[in-house]
Design a binder for these strands. Structure first.
Ligand code: MN
Ligand code: MN
Ligand code: ZN
Ligand code: ZN
Lengths: 140, 140
DNA sequence: CTCGTAATGCAAAAGATTCCCATCTCTCTT
DNA sequence: AAGAGAGATGGGAATCTTTTGCATTACGAG
Protein backbone atom coordinates (compact mmCIF):
# COMPACT_ATOMS: atom_id res chain seq x y z
CA UNK A 1 0.00 0.00 0.00
CA UNK A 2 0.90 3.66 -0.25
CA UNK A 3 2.37 3.82 3.21
CA UNK A 4 5.26 1.68 2.14
CA UNK A 5 5.99 3.88 -0.85
CA UNK A 6 6.09 6.92 1.37
CA UNK A 7 8.15 5.24 4.05
CA UNK A 8 10.54 3.90 1.45
CA UNK A 9 11.10 7.47 0.35
CA UNK A 10 12.31 8.31 3.85
CA UNK A 11 9.24 10.38 4.62
CA UNK A 12 6.93 10.15 7.59
CA UNK A 13 3.58 8.63 6.75
CA UNK A 14 1.29 11.57 7.32
CA UNK A 15 -2.30 12.12 6.35
CA UNK A 16 -1.54 14.76 3.70
CA UNK A 17 1.00 12.50 2.03
CA UNK A 18 -1.29 9.50 2.03
CA UNK A 19 -4.24 11.49 0.70
CA UNK A 20 -2.21 13.13 -2.04
CA UNK A 21 -0.76 9.83 -3.17
CA UNK A 22 -4.19 8.22 -3.15
CA UNK A 23 -5.56 11.07 -5.18
CA UNK A 24 -2.80 10.79 -7.76
CA UNK A 25 -3.43 7.07 -8.07
CA UNK A 26 -7.10 7.66 -8.77
CA UNK A 27 -6.60 10.89 -10.65
CA UNK A 28 -8.48 11.59 -13.84
CA UNK A 29 -7.01 13.35 -15.66
CA UNK A 30 -3.61 11.93 -15.04
CA UNK A 31 -1.76 15.23 -15.32
CA UNK A 32 -2.68 17.68 -12.59
CA UNK A 33 -1.32 20.92 -11.18
CA UNK A 34 -0.66 21.56 -7.50
CA UNK A 35 -3.70 23.78 -7.51
CA UNK A 36 -5.75 20.97 -9.05
CA UNK A 37 -4.65 18.58 -6.33
CA UNK A 38 -5.41 21.16 -3.66
CA UNK A 39 -8.92 21.75 -4.96
CA UNK A 40 -9.68 18.08 -5.46
CA UNK A 41 -8.66 17.45 -1.87
CA UNK A 42 -10.86 20.29 -0.66
CA UNK A 43 -13.81 18.83 -2.52
CA UNK A 44 -13.18 15.57 -0.76
CA UNK A 45 -13.34 17.38 2.53
CA UNK A 46 -9.62 17.12 3.26
CA UNK A 47 -8.20 20.18 4.96
CA UNK A 48 -4.74 20.19 3.43
CA UNK A 49 -2.89 23.44 2.84
CA UNK A 50 -1.71 24.46 -0.60
CA UNK A 51 1.81 24.92 0.74
CA UNK A 52 1.75 21.32 1.89
CA UNK A 53 0.58 20.15 -1.51
CA UNK A 54 3.52 21.90 -3.14
CA UNK A 55 5.95 20.53 -0.56
CA UNK A 56 4.68 16.99 -0.81
CA UNK A 57 4.62 16.96 -4.59
CA UNK A 58 8.20 18.21 -4.65
CA UNK A 59 9.21 15.54 -2.15
CA UNK A 60 7.41 12.87 -4.13
CA UNK A 61 9.22 14.04 -7.22
CA UNK A 62 12.59 13.85 -5.46
CA UNK A 63 11.64 10.34 -4.32
CA UNK A 64 10.75 9.30 -7.83
CA UNK A 65 7.11 8.71 -6.99
CA UNK A 66 5.92 11.55 -9.17
CA UNK A 67 7.07 13.28 -12.34
CA UNK A 68 6.82 17.00 -12.95
CA UNK A 69 6.20 18.48 -16.39
CA UNK A 70 6.44 22.05 -17.62
CA UNK A 71 3.93 22.30 -20.41
CA UNK A 72 3.48 25.85 -21.68
CA UNK A 73 0.65 26.76 -19.33
CA UNK A 74 2.51 28.82 -16.81
CA UNK A 75 2.34 26.19 -14.10
CA UNK A 76 3.78 22.73 -13.54
CA UNK A 77 1.73 19.57 -13.79
CA UNK A 78 2.41 16.32 -11.99
CA UNK A 79 1.61 12.70 -12.64
CA UNK A 80 2.17 9.50 -10.77
CA UNK A 81 5.30 7.76 -11.94
CA UNK A 82 4.39 4.41 -13.42
CA UNK A 83 7.91 3.19 -13.94
CA UNK A 84 8.01 3.57 -17.66
CA UNK A 85 9.16 6.79 -19.24
CA UNK A 86 7.03 8.48 -21.86
CA UNK A 87 6.62 11.81 -23.61
CA UNK A 88 3.59 13.96 -24.38
CA UNK A 89 1.42 15.46 -27.07
CA UNK A 90 -0.62 18.43 -25.93
CA UNK A 91 -3.53 19.94 -27.81
CA UNK A 92 -3.04 23.70 -27.92
CA UNK A 93 -6.78 24.17 -28.29
CA UNK A 94 -8.37 21.98 -25.64
CA UNK A 95 -5.42 21.00 -23.46
CA UNK A 96 -5.92 17.30 -24.04
CA UNK A 97 -2.75 15.35 -23.26
CA UNK A 98 -1.75 12.06 -24.86
CA UNK A 99 1.30 10.01 -24.09
CA UNK A 100 3.73 8.11 -26.26
CA UNK A 101 7.12 6.48 -26.21
CA UNK A 102 9.27 6.10 -29.26
CA UNK A 103 12.37 3.92 -29.07
CA UNK A 104 13.91 5.56 -32.10
CA UNK A 105 13.71 9.01 -30.59
CA UNK A 106 14.90 7.84 -27.19
CA UNK A 107 17.91 6.22 -28.81
CA UNK A 108 18.82 9.24 -30.92
CA UNK A 109 18.64 11.50 -27.90
CA UNK A 110 21.26 9.53 -26.04
CA UNK A 111 23.50 9.54 -29.08
CA UNK A 112 23.10 13.28 -29.56
CA UNK A 113 23.87 14.02 -25.93
CA UNK A 114 27.00 11.87 -26.19
CA UNK A 115 28.06 13.56 -29.42
CA UNK A 116 27.96 16.86 -27.58
CA UNK A 117 29.93 15.62 -24.62
CA UNK A 118 26.92 15.50 -22.30
CA UNK A 119 25.90 12.68 -20.05
CA UNK A 120 22.14 12.65 -20.49
CA UNK A 121 20.27 12.83 -17.22
CA UNK A 122 16.77 13.51 -18.37
CA UNK A 123 14.87 14.98 -21.27
CA UNK A 124 11.59 16.63 -22.07
CA UNK A 125 9.82 16.16 -25.37
CA UNK A 126 6.46 17.78 -25.87
CA UNK A 127 4.63 17.91 -29.17
CA UNK A 128 2.06 20.70 -29.47
CA UNK A 129 -0.71 20.41 -31.98
CA UNK A 130 -4.42 20.43 -32.68
CA UNK A 131 -6.30 17.28 -31.84
CA UNK A 132 -9.18 15.85 -33.83
CA UNK A 133 -11.61 15.36 -30.95
CA UNK A 134 -15.11 16.45 -31.94
CA UNK A 135 -15.36 18.15 -28.56
CA UNK A 136 -12.27 20.23 -29.26
CA UNK A 137 -13.00 23.90 -29.83
CA UNK A 138 -11.21 25.24 -32.90
CA UNK A 139 -12.07 22.26 -35.14
CA UNK A 140 -14.08 24.08 -37.76
CA UNK B 1 18.54 46.65 -41.26
CA UNK B 2 16.46 45.89 -38.20
CA UNK B 3 13.91 48.56 -38.97
CA UNK B 4 12.61 46.56 -41.91
CA UNK B 5 12.18 43.44 -39.78
CA UNK B 6 10.18 45.38 -37.26
CA UNK B 7 8.13 47.17 -39.87
CA UNK B 8 7.49 43.92 -41.69
CA UNK B 9 6.02 42.58 -38.46
CA UNK B 10 3.45 45.37 -38.53
CA UNK B 11 5.02 47.16 -35.58
CA UNK B 12 6.06 50.77 -35.30
CA UNK B 13 9.80 51.24 -35.36
CA UNK B 14 10.43 52.53 -31.89
CA UNK B 15 13.63 52.93 -29.94
CA UNK B 16 12.90 50.09 -27.50
CA UNK B 17 12.16 47.67 -30.32
CA UNK B 18 15.26 48.60 -32.26
CA UNK B 19 17.50 48.40 -29.22
CA UNK B 20 16.11 45.05 -28.12
CA UNK B 21 16.49 43.57 -31.58
CA UNK B 22 20.05 44.90 -31.83
CA UNK B 23 20.86 43.43 -28.48
CA UNK B 24 19.49 40.03 -29.44
CA UNK B 25 21.53 40.07 -32.63
CA UNK B 26 24.71 40.76 -30.71
CA UNK B 27 23.73 38.72 -27.70
CA UNK B 28 26.21 36.41 -26.03
CA UNK B 29 24.91 34.13 -24.74
CA UNK B 30 22.28 33.50 -27.34
CA UNK B 31 19.56 32.48 -24.90
CA UNK B 32 18.48 35.29 -22.61
CA UNK B 33 15.61 36.00 -20.23
CA UNK B 34 13.51 39.16 -20.27
CA UNK B 35 15.31 40.20 -17.11
CA UNK B 36 18.65 39.60 -18.84
CA UNK B 37 17.63 41.81 -21.74
CA UNK B 38 16.41 44.49 -19.36
CA UNK B 39 19.66 44.55 -17.42
CA UNK B 40 21.84 44.47 -20.51
CA UNK B 41 19.95 47.46 -21.84
CA UNK B 42 20.36 49.30 -18.56
CA UNK B 43 24.09 48.71 -18.66
CA UNK B 44 24.16 50.23 -22.11
CA UNK B 45 22.42 53.28 -20.71
CA UNK B 46 19.09 52.60 -22.36
CA UNK B 47 16.12 53.57 -20.23
CA UNK B 48 13.68 50.88 -21.27
CA UNK B 49 11.10 49.54 -18.85
CA UNK B 50 10.93 45.86 -17.96
CA UNK B 51 7.26 45.78 -18.94
CA UNK B 52 8.23 47.01 -22.38
CA UNK B 53 10.88 44.32 -22.68
CA UNK B 54 8.27 41.67 -21.93
CA UNK B 55 5.79 43.23 -24.32
CA UNK B 56 8.30 43.57 -27.15
CA UNK B 57 9.67 40.08 -26.74
CA UNK B 58 6.15 38.68 -26.86
CA UNK B 59 5.41 40.70 -29.98
CA UNK B 60 8.65 39.60 -31.60
CA UNK B 61 7.72 36.04 -30.82
CA UNK B 62 4.30 36.45 -32.41
CA UNK B 63 6.01 37.97 -35.43
CA UNK B 64 8.41 35.06 -35.70
CA UNK B 65 11.47 37.19 -35.01
CA UNK B 66 12.19 35.51 -31.73
CA UNK B 67 11.66 32.10 -30.19
CA UNK B 68 10.70 31.51 -26.57
CA UNK B 69 11.87 28.50 -24.59
CA UNK B 70 10.79 27.16 -21.23
CA UNK B 71 13.84 25.48 -19.81
CA UNK B 72 13.39 24.37 -16.21
CA UNK B 73 14.64 27.55 -14.63
CA UNK B 74 11.41 29.19 -13.62
CA UNK B 75 11.59 31.82 -16.32
CA UNK B 76 11.40 31.88 -20.10
CA UNK B 77 14.42 32.50 -22.29
CA UNK B 78 14.40 34.02 -25.74
CA UNK B 79 16.66 33.81 -28.74
CA UNK B 80 16.74 35.47 -32.12
CA UNK B 81 15.10 33.28 -34.72
CA UNK B 82 17.63 32.33 -37.35
CA UNK B 83 15.21 30.64 -39.67
CA UNK B 84 16.25 27.11 -38.97
CA UNK B 85 14.59 25.13 -36.21
CA UNK B 86 16.72 23.42 -33.61
CA UNK B 87 16.46 21.83 -30.19
CA UNK B 88 18.56 22.15 -27.04
CA UNK B 89 20.83 20.36 -24.62
CA UNK B 90 21.11 22.07 -21.25
CA UNK B 91 23.72 21.31 -18.62
CA UNK B 92 21.98 20.91 -15.28
CA UNK B 93 25.18 21.90 -13.50
CA UNK B 94 26.43 25.01 -15.26
CA UNK B 95 23.47 26.02 -17.41
CA UNK B 96 25.44 25.77 -20.64
CA UNK B 97 23.14 25.42 -23.65
CA UNK B 98 24.02 23.67 -26.89
CA UNK B 99 21.87 23.36 -29.97
CA UNK B 100 21.21 20.52 -32.34
CA UNK B 101 18.85 19.40 -35.05
CA UNK B 102 18.17 15.79 -35.86
CA UNK B 103 16.21 14.93 -38.98
CA UNK B 104 15.34 11.48 -37.70
CA UNK B 105 13.73 12.85 -34.56
CA UNK B 106 11.95 15.62 -36.42
CA UNK B 107 10.51 13.08 -38.80
CA UNK B 108 9.36 10.69 -36.09
CA UNK B 109 7.62 13.49 -34.24
CA UNK B 110 5.43 14.33 -37.19
CA UNK B 111 4.56 10.68 -37.62
CA UNK B 112 3.72 10.25 -33.96
CA UNK B 113 1.51 13.33 -33.91
CA UNK B 114 -0.32 12.02 -36.97
CA UNK B 115 -0.72 8.57 -35.44
CA UNK B 116 -2.46 10.22 -32.51
CA UNK B 117 -4.75 12.29 -34.67
CA UNK B 118 -2.93 15.54 -33.97
CA UNK B 119 -1.79 18.11 -36.46
CA UNK B 120 1.62 19.07 -35.14
CA UNK B 121 2.03 22.77 -34.67
CA UNK B 122 5.21 22.95 -32.69
CA UNK B 123 7.34 20.92 -30.37
CA UNK B 124 9.86 21.31 -27.61
CA UNK B 125 12.71 18.89 -27.08
CA UNK B 126 15.20 19.59 -24.34
CA UNK B 127 17.87 17.17 -23.23
CA UNK B 128 19.19 17.74 -19.71
CA UNK B 129 22.57 16.38 -18.75
CA UNK B 130 26.00 17.08 -17.39
CA UNK B 131 28.49 18.65 -19.76
CA UNK B 132 32.19 17.87 -19.85
CA UNK B 133 33.47 21.44 -19.78
CA UNK B 134 36.45 21.78 -17.42
CA UNK B 135 34.86 24.95 -16.09
CA UNK B 136 31.66 23.11 -15.18
CA UNK B 137 31.17 22.70 -11.43
CA UNK B 138 30.23 19.17 -10.49
CA UNK B 139 32.76 17.49 -12.80
CA UNK B 140 34.81 15.69 -10.20
C1' DC C 1 4.28 70.14 -39.11
C1' DT C 2 0.04 68.30 -36.92
C1' DC C 3 -2.84 64.85 -35.30
C1' DG C 4 -4.39 60.40 -33.90
C1' DT C 5 -3.06 56.06 -32.54
C1' DA C 6 0.06 52.97 -30.98
C1' DA C 7 3.79 52.49 -27.65
C1' DT C 8 6.09 53.33 -23.31
C1' DG C 9 7.25 53.66 -18.30
C1' DC C 10 5.85 53.01 -13.77
C1' DA C 11 3.35 51.14 -10.46
C1' DA C 12 -0.06 48.00 -9.15
C1' DA C 13 -1.92 43.45 -9.93
C1' DA C 14 -1.79 38.61 -10.87
C1' DG C 15 -0.38 34.01 -10.75
C1' DA C 16 2.65 30.46 -9.17
C1' DT C 17 5.59 28.79 -5.78
C1' DT C 18 8.34 29.21 -1.63
C1' DC C 19 9.30 30.58 2.99
C1' DC C 20 8.34 31.46 8.10
C1' DC C 21 6.99 29.92 12.26
C1' DA C 22 3.94 28.58 15.87
C1' DT C 23 1.47 24.48 16.43
C1' DC C 24 0.69 19.61 15.61
C1' DT C 25 1.83 14.64 14.86
C1' DC C 26 4.37 10.73 13.65
C1' DT C 27 7.85 7.43 15.38
C1' DC C 28 10.99 5.72 18.36
C1' DT C 29 11.89 4.91 23.31
C1' DT C 30 10.96 3.86 27.70
C1' DA D 1 0.64 3.11 26.73
C1' DA D 2 2.86 7.67 27.66
C1' DG D 3 6.74 10.96 26.45
C1' DA D 4 10.16 13.18 23.84
C1' DG D 5 11.99 14.94 19.80
C1' DA D 6 12.41 15.40 15.02
C1' DG D 7 9.85 16.32 11.35
C1' DA D 8 5.49 17.96 9.17
C1' DT D 9 1.61 21.06 8.68
C1' DG D 10 -1.27 25.21 7.76
C1' DG D 11 -1.94 29.85 6.87
C1' DG D 12 -0.19 33.87 5.72
C1' DA D 13 3.56 36.67 4.22
C1' DA D 14 7.06 36.90 0.93
C1' DT D 15 9.22 36.04 -3.69
C1' DC D 16 9.52 35.80 -8.38
C1' DT D 17 7.99 36.21 -12.92
C1' DT D 18 4.89 38.16 -16.02
C1' DT D 19 0.84 41.00 -17.12
C1' DT D 20 -2.10 45.10 -16.87
C1' DG D 21 -3.93 49.83 -16.20
C1' DC D 22 -3.24 54.36 -17.20
C1' DA D 23 -1.35 58.87 -17.95
C1' DT D 24 2.16 60.52 -20.97
C1' DT D 25 5.04 60.35 -25.14
C1' DA D 26 6.57 59.34 -29.70
C1' DC D 27 5.88 57.35 -34.39
C1' DG D 28 4.36 58.20 -39.05
C1' DA D 29 0.50 59.06 -42.31
C1' DG D 30 -1.25 62.95 -44.49
MN1 MN E 1 2.32 11.55 -18.73
MN1 MN F 1 18.57 27.93 -29.43
ZN1 ZN G 1 -8.04 19.54 -28.76
ZN1 ZN H 1 28.08 22.05 -17.33
Amino acid sequence: MDNQEIRKAGLKVTLPRVKILELLEASVPRHVSAEDVYKMLLEKGEEIGLATVYRVLTQFEAAGLVTRHNFEEGHAVFELDRGEHHDHIVCVLCGKVEEFMDATIEERQKEIAAEHGFEMEDHSLIIYGRCNKPSCPGRE
